[in-house]
Every structure is written in C-alpha cells, then in structure tokens.
C-alpha cells in the first residue's frame, strides 16, 4: 500500500507547491478549514496563488493569513465580508477577486472533479455574474454556462481518516471539503484522528480514498466566528 500518511503538514505538502499555482480549499467561514495546511503554505513562502474557497478567513486566521503575507494573487469566493485586510487589498487593486455564487462554486468543484468541463445554471442570470458567459435557453428558461474547476492542489479538513485515506467529516464542518477533495490534481487532507483500517463503516465513508493522495493528523483550534447561545 502506498504510504499516504505524513508526519506533519510541511512534509505533507513537500514537492507540491509552486508559484502561480491554483489551490482549492474546503471550509465554510472558519468551520472545517485546513488550518495546519494553510499555516504550512504560509511558511513555504509560495506566492501568486489563485485560491478557490467559499470564504477568505478572517484577518488573523484561516486563509486570511495568506492574504496578510500577500501570497494570494486571486481569490474565487462567494463571500468575503469578515475580512478587513481582504477588503483593503481588493479595493486598492492589489488582489484580484472573482465572486462566484456559493452553489456555483460548489458545483464547479464537483463538476471539475467529475470530469465535467462546464454546466448550465439559472443562478446569476441577468446579473454581473453572467457577464461574458455563454447563455442558452432550455424549456423556455435562460441559463448561463459555468466551468468546472480542476486545481493544482486541494487542501481539505476531515474529522477522521482510516489508514488508507477514506475520510469522514463531522456535522457542518463537511461543507466544501468533499468537493474540493475531488477537484485537486493532488489532494492533501488534514484530520483530527487517524483510525485503523476496518474501523470505519464502509457504508458511511464521505470521501473515498481514491481522492486523497496524502493525509496528516493535526491539532485544530476550531475558532468560532459567532458564538451565539441561549439560556439553559
């Protein structure tokens, strides 16, 4: 069996990073983000990155750290509202930004991973998102064509991996992770726990191991953006 299990995030990315590359990242807000791999990318100093990720982290955490070090050339995201440094770089022209509707971004990753180069959707018709895109009518309704994404590297965060790289996610930390995992030419997963072969129920695997080339166990801070509570 090929060795997929790496001892730390830096070695899990060894030989995979180069300037100008594209990276697909899992996560929604700060939930289910590959914290350790992001830190390792920062430490590597790789630059001019194009990053496909629903959000861009916050100033000090998540993908925000790669914005602070100016390693990102372009973000493709649906919502970047929590990140002041992002806004500053974008409005000053230092950072390129392509807004994708959230469902379009998810479907672009899914399609790219499934060998589907483009698809049609109603989302964004008649808006800025439709500019420059092919339109086509089906059954009397107008749709726009969106492209599948294949990234040089995908980085994802899972709850558990078995020793073969079959992944399980937990609650809403699943989000974009299974989709990003499919659309990387190489996919590296960081997980909370590596469990023995045979201990995961094969009926319950979220990401089959074929999509995961490398994985690493890491510590996760799991920062919470909006701590909302009710009285007990």
């Amino acid at each position: 069996m090929a060795q997929k299990n790496y001892s730390d995030a830096n070695s899990a990315l060894e030989g995979l990073l180069f300037d100008g590359m594209t990276i697909a990242a899992g996560g929604f807000g700060l939930c289910g983000i590959p914290e350790n791999l992001i830190a390792a990318i920062r430490d590597s100093g790789v630059k001019d990155l194009t990053v496909y990720s629903n959000n861009a982290g916050v100033d000090e955490f998540g993908l925000g750290v790669l914005l602070q070090t100016k390693q990102v050339k372009k973000m493709v995201s649906s919502y970047v509202g929590e990140n002041a440094e992002f806004m500053r770089q974008y409005l000053s022209g230092e950072l390129e930004l392509e807004f994708n509707p959230q469902g379009t971004l998810a479907e672009r990753m899914r399609a790219g991973g499934a060998g589907i180069p483009g698809f049609y959707t109603k989302t964004g018709v008649g808006t800025l998102v439709a500019e420059g895109k092919e339109e086509k009518d089906f059954d009397g309704e107008t749709y726009i064509m969106e492209r599948g994404i294949v990234a040089d590297l995908a980085i994802v965060k899972a709850w558990k991996s078995d020793e073969h790289g079959n992944l399980l996610y937990r609650k809403t930390a699943r989000n974009f992770n299974p989709l990003a995992a499919t659309c990387g030419k190489v996919t590296v997963a960081e997980v909370e726990e590596i469990v023995p072969l045979g201990s995961l129920n094969p009926d319950n695997i979220h990401t089959p191991s074929i999509y995961v080339q490398r994985f690493v166990q890491g510590e996760h801070e799991k920062r919470i953006e909006q701590r909302t509570i009710r009285e007990a």
Binding site: G81, L91, P101, T104, K122
Partner: peptide, 14 residues
Amino acid sequence: LVKGMGGAMDLVAG
C-alpha cells in the same frame, strides 16, 4: 461594500 452574494443568487434562482 464588497462582501459577496454568498448563497443568495442560488436561492432566488432556485
């Protein structure tokens, strides 16, 4: 104000 559409465009379309 440049925050993004999130899922709103998908919701209103679908």
